[in-house]
Computed example of a mutant assay.
Amino acid sequence: MKLAALALAGSLALAACASDETGSGGSGSGASGGSEDGPKIGLAYDTGGRGDKSFNDSAYAGVEAAIEADGGSVQELSPNSDASNRADLLTQLADQGFNPIIAVGFAYGDVIGEVAQQYPDVSFAIVDSTGVDVADNVTGLLFAANEGSFLGGVAAATKSETGHIGFVGGVETPLIQSFEAGYVAGARAVNPDIIIDRQYISPAGDFSGFNDPARGQVVAQGMFDAGADIVYAAAGGSGIGVFQAAAASNGRAIGVDSDQYETVGDPALQPVIMTSVLKRVDNAVEAYIGQFVDGTVEGGSDEVYDLASEGVGLSYSGGFIDDIQSTIDDYTQQIVDGEITVPETPTD
């Protein structure tokens, strides 16, 4: 697998408004500007679509940056309410001449290979799923989310005043379990006796857990009521509910994927977002489109973004963890140097 080296430069400023057009089957669509010159980019969102202030918005920010750099235009599509039309979205974009096409989220992994094989002249990328042995024209954009989450666990355990923290996962899948595994390992590296509550909003196969803020609030509130003072939300759009629970409980929360202190949209929630575990989907998407423009895309392969390549990390917006940056930096270096191997699956 190729190791993609990207700079983690500057704060992430993301568009936070939802698509304002709705197509048949509940699919949001609409060209989002750009120019006639450059690539015609197809962007198929994960559950919740643009406006989740997290994962999907980060992908869109990467497309925006690529269009600013190289021109082009983008067509956006979102899954219907039960996310059963993912293959149809990719097919629609390919039929309409969009190239490259970027599928946001591992849930497209079950369908992208079959679609891509029907359109061998189109370049496809998928976020959070592999392109290896899928199709010769599919590139996987993968992230060492466990490594970034380890640092989140370090921050939580170091800043916790109760010795009790929590983790709210959106959907119980191997990918989100890697966030859990890293978070638990990082917290226990700091405090082996720390109490860590862990719960998922929905089971595997039910993707509603990524877009249910009300349920996220209920789950997180239970953790705060039980004594946790910091809760990590690896739950997409449901993370807003975790932030709301933190605000109601005088607690703190950890965001995910993008710098949610900057993107949350509600100034009343900013003070509770202690940090965010960054997964630089924006950088990965921008880099992939740049490779497409340059003619250097290698299908049937993966690009891997980890701590060493600065593809994952922590945000410092708000200044809440500035005082422990040396601790974060120390653990980061130990992981990069191979002194710490971060687990990808929960150990208990």
Rank of each mutant, 00 (worst) to 15 (best):
V132S: 12
V122C: 00
V122L: 02
I112Q: 03
A135W: 10
A107F: 15
T139R: 14
T130P: 03
A107R: 14
Q118A: 11
A116I: 01
V115F: 07
Q117C: 04
I112S: 02
I112Y: 00
V115W: 04
E114R: 13
E114C: 10
S123Y: 01
F124R: 08
V138W: 10
G131C: 11
S129G: 06
Q118G: 02
T139C: 07
E114F: 10
Q117K: 15
V115N: 03
D133T: 14
V127Y: 00
A125M: 08
S129K: 00
G105A: 12
A107P: 11
G131H: 08
Q118D: 05
Q118I: 00
A116E: 05
V111L: 13
G109R: 09
Q117T: 04
N137F: 09
D136L: 10
Q117D: 08
G105R: 12
N137C: 10
T130D: 06
V138H: 06
D110E: 15
G140Q: 13
D110G: 14
A135D: 07
A135R: 10
I126K: 02
I112F: 02
G131K: 06
T130R: 06
A135Q: 09
V115S: 04
Q117S: 08
G140K: 12
T139S: 14
G131L: 11
D121S: 07
D136F: 08
F124Q: 03
Q118W: 04
D136K: 13
V115Q: 07
D128A: 02
I126C: 01
Q118H: 04
E114M: 13
V132E: 15
A125Q: 04
A116L: 06
F106T: 06
T130W: 11
V138A: 13
V122T: 07
F124I: 04
F124M: 01
A116Y: 05
Y119C: 05
V127C: 02
E114G: 13
G140I: 15
A135L: 12
V132Q: 14
Q117I: 03
D133S: 14
S123F: 00
T130C: 05
T139V: 15
G105C: 10
I126R: 01
V134M: 12
Q117P: 03
V132R: 13
G113S: 06
D133P: 03
F124W: 01
D133N: 15
A135K: 10
I126E: 05
P120I: 00
Y108T: 07
V115E: 04
F106A: 13
G140M: 14
Y108Q: 08
D121K: 01
G109L: 06
G131P: 05
E114H: 11
A125I: 12
E114T: 15
S123P: 02
V134D: 10
T139Y: 08
V111S: 14
S129Q: 03
G113M: 09
A116S: 00
D110M: 13
T139H: 08
F124Y: 05
